[in-house]
Design a binder for these strands. Structure first.
Lengths: 222, 222
DNA sequence: GATGGTAATTTTATCGATAAAAGGCGCGAA
DNA sequence: TTCGCGCCTTTTATCGATAAAATTACCATC
């Protein structure tokens, strides 16, 4: 039924581990014992260890000298650094995406903007409950926004940072952003991008990230 | 005598492998067989495999589905992409380094500029022979230039790209850059940086990279 | 009750072995 | 000759076992 099931033990463990890390199921700072993980995922030491090595290079896992691995610790400082890096990196990625974007890009952007605008942020109107469809559409929006940047390297770097930021969102488990109209922010960013006003679009995107960061920082610290 | 000898098999293999990759001792595209490498470095399959996994995440090695690893292929296209990414990334890293650089940074920069200016590029005056001291001083110059950027994440990303570029330099084995005064280019970049003229410094740095790239591209293709 | 040292237990890092998969070779048929 | 097919070899991915290192638990002493 699915596309990938027998793609090799290592791949599977790697995907699973990354997912558990990103969703906060493996808490930041948690000691990652090879045996335990192996038992959990039904794999031996080699694949687990290999997956951990990759994830360490990606920054989701930390190697501690000769005493194993741990889930990358989360802190307000690390988070601030992450947001700063993201703002600066996406400044150039978005600018170049806008510069190089063709008609097909514009159309992709229009589509994801439309989709995002139609999906409710929360499943129920009264109490906030994460809507997975919105999450997907939101990720797609940001991905498409940057997708016309000619440098795949830079796009991948931005993607890595986005994942790390998502992890913080999962950890902090922020429900809502009072006093913000997130939909309007997305709207404005898309507008500026389509109008090819790179400087405006970048400023709006950075403001968007920094606003989100403000709430997350509060949730993390408190 | 040295600082690190018994730092664990994996670390050692990792360092060794990376070095062999960067110096071109392991040719681009070469099949990397776990057994062979293990024999070469005196290690078993696990450490080698683990090291290869990390290096794959760093982009120096490629995983081929379920059929092992190979040294990352080198091509003119990949090189062009690398240079482009580097120019764009370092645009912001250098700018922020200049913005945030304090007196200590200025002084570090003055020192490495001075050192670089005093060391001959080639060991002998007649026939060009790489001078390892110059290589070191050159790397230090570029590293210090960016060192005041407050984002460690971005600095590390720039460092990764620098390594990949160095690999191409080793592969292409370019002897000299006729018609260029590389020393003067470094001088001008440092001058602009010390004068806090970020835009000028960035433009000069990018021109510096693009000029080098031109020669390398020629050497690669020819 | 705190402290220091030693023994028991965990955990890591690494090896060697092995099943399964991929690749290559040679032979026979068209 | 060229193509296809099955056999033999190599290589991968993975497991289970193990020595060394680190942690923890425990106990006797002050």
């Amino acid at each position: 039924m699915q596309e990938n099931d027998d793609a090799g033990m290592t791949q599977r463990v790697h995907r699973q581990l990354r997912s558990d890390l990103l969703l906060g199921r493996l808490a930041p700072g948690l000691k990652l014992k090879v045996q335990t993980l192996g038992a959990t995922y039904g794999a031996g030491a080699s694949p687990v260890r290999e997956a951990l090595s990759s994830l360490a290079a990606e920054g989701l896992v930390q190697r501690i000298d000769g005493r194993g691995f741990r889930a990358a610790p989360a802190s307000v400082e690390d988070f601030d650094e992450l947001v700063r890096a993201r703002c600066w990196l996406e400044e150039v990625v978005l600018r170049e995406s806008i510069t190089a974007g063709d008609v097909a890009w514009e159309e992709r952007l229009v589509v994801v903007r439309w989709r995002l605008s139609r999906i409710p942020r929360s499943v129920s109107a009264e109490r906030f409950t994460h809507n997975p469809d919105w999450e997907v559409a939101h990720a797609a929006f940001h991905q498409v926004l940057l997708s016309a940047c000619p440098s795949a390297t830079l796009r991948e770097m931005a993607e890595t940072l986005r994942e790390r930021a998502e992890r913080y969102r999962a950890i902090a488990n922020v429900a809502a952003y009072p006093g913000r109209d997130v939909a309007a922010e997305h709207e404005a960013i898309a507008e500026a991008a389509l109008a090819r006003e790179a400087a405006t679009a970048v400023a709006l995107l950075q403001a968007h990230y920094r606003a989100t960061a403000g709430f997350l920082r509060h949730a993390l610290a408190g």
